[in-house]
């Protein structure tokens, strides 16, 4: 039975899909800061995701410790965010265009970081990586203790990040960033330096995106120049799926971030399902993802329209 084989394959691939979803979830959480809190569509992420992977690979290959490599990846992502922020707030370029410019420029930067090659393997000879695909199997076979399991390590990592963001967005500075996105006129009237906050938000977001990229590069064993292509679509999918699925339950800020992470996991499980159950060529996945996100972005608007019509009808009836 072909289908049973496929099903078996899907079940076997599930832990990997969850782990990968969790990694992309960190990227989506970064995107949440710009897209949801600052209301900026930041396409920098398609470039800064790879920057994180490339920097991490280069640092680790040069013999640096994994934590230091990831810190550098985070900082390089922040630098990318700063460039977009600078182009947007100081050069007055519309945010989306500014981010496209940074993204394009980053392609060359990423290539340079990887020594002008399109891939760079992480040679973990004398330094251990935090996550790797092989750990899934090694833990399952008892070759490594359970805490090496990628779902556990990345899950823990995500929890810490969510905790830190929850704290930060509750501080005076964090609240002022939320106000900047919610109503820029109000923010300025209350003495908030909105330009500074936008730059800070973009830096924080892209730092997280790069951190996520560094984790994916470790997980896959290499950084690759195209690894961030379409990252924004995956991020948006995660945010929207999380919102649609858990929005009614999760109102608290930390839980909304958890929903984003879960959204990314759901997204990857669905993708895995399509690949292994229906046997779709992986090359079709980009078109498929784009279509799925387009639908998910449309549905809430349709529902809003419906609700309005319903209300209007009621008002007419009551009149």
């Amino acid at each position: 039975m072909d289908f049973l084989d496929n099903l078996n394959g899907f079940v076997n691939a599930l832990p990997g899909a969850v782990a990968e979803g969790l990694i992309w979830g960190i990227m989506a959480i970064g995107l949440f800061i710009t897209y949801k809190l600052l209301e900026i569509s930041d396409l920098t992420v398609d470039g800064s995701f790879c920057t994180g992977g490339a920097v991490c690979a280069a640092m680790m290959t040069a013999g640096f410790n994994v934590w230091f490599a990831m810190l550098m990846a985070f900082l390089s992502g922040m630098a990318a965010g700063w460039v977009t922020g600078f182009l947007h707030t100081k050069c007055k370029i519309p945010a989306i265009l500014a981010s496209i410019l940074t993204q394009l420029g980053l392609w060359t930067v990423n290539m340079a970081v990887m020594g002008m090659r399109s891939t760079m393997a992480i040679l973990a000879v004398n330094n251990d990586v935090m996550v790797a695909m092989v750990f899934l199997e090694e833990v399952a076979l008892g070759m490594k203790p359970f805490f090496y399991h990628p779902i556990l390590t990345v899950g823990l990592f995500s929890a810490v990040i969510i905790g830190l963001l929850y704290w930060f967005f509750g501080t005076e500075r964090g609240a002022s960033i939320r106000a900047t996105g919610a109503n820029v006129h109000m923010a300025r009237a209350q003495g908030i330096n909105t330009d500074f906050n936008k730059v800070l938000g973009l830096m924080l977001a892209n730092g997280l995106v790069a951190l996520s990229g560094s984790l994916l590069a470790q997980y896959k064993g290499s950084a690759e120049i195209n690894m961030g292509r379409g990252a924004i679509v995956i991020g948006l999918a995660a945010i929207i799926i999380g919102e649609v699925t858990f929005g009614k339950l999760f109102k608290n800020f930390a839980l909304r971030l958890v929903a984003v992470s879960l959204g990314a996991i759901i997204y990857y499980i669905v993708i895995q399902m399509v690949i292994s159950l229906i046997d779709v060529d992986a090359q079709y996945m980009k078109l498929f993802s784009a279509a799925v996100v387009a639908v998910f972005l449309t549905v809430p608007n349709l529902q809003k329209g419906k609700a309005r019509h319903k209300k209007e009808r009621k008002e007419v009836q009551n009149a």
Partner: peptide
């Protein structure tokens, strides 16, 4: 004049810090 997606008390807290540095 207000941030619609934020709570009443959050809006007030933002206003109470007008002209002061936004710290951690």
């Amino acid at each position: 004049g207000t941030a619609a997606t934020m709570q009443i008390e959050e809006n007030l807290a933002l206003a109470a810090r007008r002209g002061k540095p936004r710290t951690l």
